[in-house]
Write a protein that binds this DNA or RNA. Structure first.
Length: 432
RNA sequence: GUGGGCGUAGCUCAAUUGGUCAGAGCGCUGGACUGUGGCUCCAGAGGUUGGGGGUUCAAUUCCCCUCGCUCACCCCA
């Protein structure tokens, strides 16, 4: 095959899968409404500076994973690798600080990172993102975590591990950094190569290293929690208390460190036990300095992002329901070429009444049309041939029961609609 | 960016220790008396065995390169 294929690391979400995504988005949308978050649509590319300053120059994401290019006017633009920076940019640019606070916003869409593709890791991947900007109340942290857990609960996700930590603020971070560096100084030679590099640039990440040797060494290392300033410490206990109060099963992981520089205080992650190495299904936290780092006034904020591919993957792994896939209500069958025009007219008639319907466009035989009708998932086959035209009727066959009768053509739509609503009621009855 | 595994019809896979026309199931298309699907039966279409090069009388099977997939490192959603 010499035809063009999709670039590495991206994939097509085809109909057999897209309806599952729809379900995830529906649950997300409903939950957003329940929690008072409103949807925004943000651009897929931004000024490169937004990310280099917002996310952090020394982060892996910015250093080696961004899709950056110059546009025709020579501006450096970047395909967004994450959403928080854009969300805060939008908040500032649209003066949302003048509106009711905090601004509770959510969004969903594709993100782009140049990484080696792997299970649950793509170069274009979808995130759902929730941000609450403008408040430093610990209960907003709690709510942010709660939103994500509620979405996962509704989706039926199990085998999740929710971990939380506090990474401090500009006051306590340097204290911890120093304590950590002086602790590690003598052991520097034993650390893995990447951690040696991290020692000066980003020592915090050494705590997060999965290398067993590094883990061993950092076992006794000072954690962020022990170095928190009074304010951060108080905030963290309030968050934990709040989580407790709402009954969220969350454990503290002192080693949890997020990869993006803007996080302050609360950091949290939701891990799935049914994914491979890429097991983070959701990550987030507080970022009280993000707005400042991109040139705005000091503005506190908390949020999280969840990976849609990973959510769907986990759900599939766990055999969760995605609701019902969309199917047609009716398939119009034309027994004879002479009646096709009328059949098409009927098709549009019933579609206009809100019935999902289709017809053959391949010149198939009568028999084959029925076969297609059966395969389409439609409950009804509606036959309109010379006989029916002569009597102003249409023959309706219930493809599930095999029952068939002739109706006046004008009654067809209401017949199908009534059947559908009766079916829905029956399903609801079964649920009760 | 680094390593391991893999790459045969639309899909899932088989086969040739290098040698006649590369197979099956599912799917697709058509048929099994005239206007009725799902089951069954029959038939058909569809592959220069990811692409390129090399070794050989001969390669889908061996070697190299490349592209892609996959898993792990890394990173994270």
């Amino acid at each position: 095959m010499s035809s063009i294929s999709a670039p590495r690391g991206v994939r097509d979400i085809l109909p057999d899968e897209s309806w599952k995504w729809e379900y995830v988005f529906k649950v997300t949308r409903d939950t957003a409404r329940d929690f008072g978050y409103r949807e925004v649509h943000l651009p897929v590319f931004e000024h490169t500076e937004l990310f280099s300053r917002g996310v952090g120059e020394t982060t892996d994401v910015v250093e080696k994973e961004m899709y950056t290019f110059d546009d025709r006017a020579g501006r450096s633009l970047t395909l967004r690798p994450e959403l928080s920076a854009s969300m805060v940019r939008s908040y500032l640019e649209n003066r949302m600080d003048k509106l009711h606070q905090p601004a509770k916003l959510w969004s969903a869409g594709p993100m782009f990172r140049y990484e080696r593709p792997q299970k649950g890791r793509y170069r274009q991947f979808w995130q759902i993102d929730f941000e609450a900007i403008g408040s430093q109340d610990p209960y907003v942290d709690v709510e942010s975590i709660a939103v994500s857990l509620e979405i996962f609960r509704k989706l039926g996700l199990a085998n999740l591990e929710v971990v939380v930590n506090s990474v401090g603020c500009p006051v306590c971070r340097p204290v911890h950094k120093e304590a950590l560096q002086s602790f590690l100084k003598s052991k520097l030679g034993d650390l893995c190569e990447t951690c040696k590099g991290r020692f000066n640039r980003n020592p915090l990440r050494i705590l997060d290293c999965k290398n067993p040797v590094c883990r061993e060494i950092t076992e006794e290392a000072p954690d962020t929690i022990s170095c928190l300033c009074a304010e951060c410490s108080e905030h963290f206990s309030a968050v934990r208390l709040g989580l407790d109060r709402i009954g969220a099963a969350v454990s503290v992981d002192k080693r949890l460190v997020r990869g993006l520089d803007y996080y302050t205080k609360t950091a949290y992650e939701v891990l799935s036990g049914d994914l491979g190495a890429q097991n983070a299904v959701c990550g987030g936290g507080r970022y009280d300095n993000l707005a400042e780092s991109i040139g705005g006034p000091h503005t506190p904020g908390v949020g999280f992002a969840a990976g849609v591919e990973r959510i769907v993957l986990t759900m599939e792994q766990q055999g969760r329901s995605f609701g019902e896939p969309p199917v047609l209500d009716a398939y119009v069958v034309s027994p004879d070429p002479s009646s096709r025009d009328e059949s098409v007219a009927l098709l549009y008639e019933i579609r206009r009444s809100g019935i999902a319907a289709d017809i053959d466009y391949m010149g198939r035989s009568f028999k084959a049309q029925f076969k297609t009708a059966g395969g389409s998932g439609a409950v009804f086959a509606c036959v309109l041939g010379p006989d029916e035209i002569a009597t102003g009727s249409v023959t309706v066959k219930n493809l599930e029961t095999g029952e068939q009768h002739q109706l006046a053509r004008a009654e067809l739509s209401s017949f199908i609609i009534e059947f559908k609503s009766a079916k829905v009621k029956k399903q609801e009855g079964n649920l009760l």
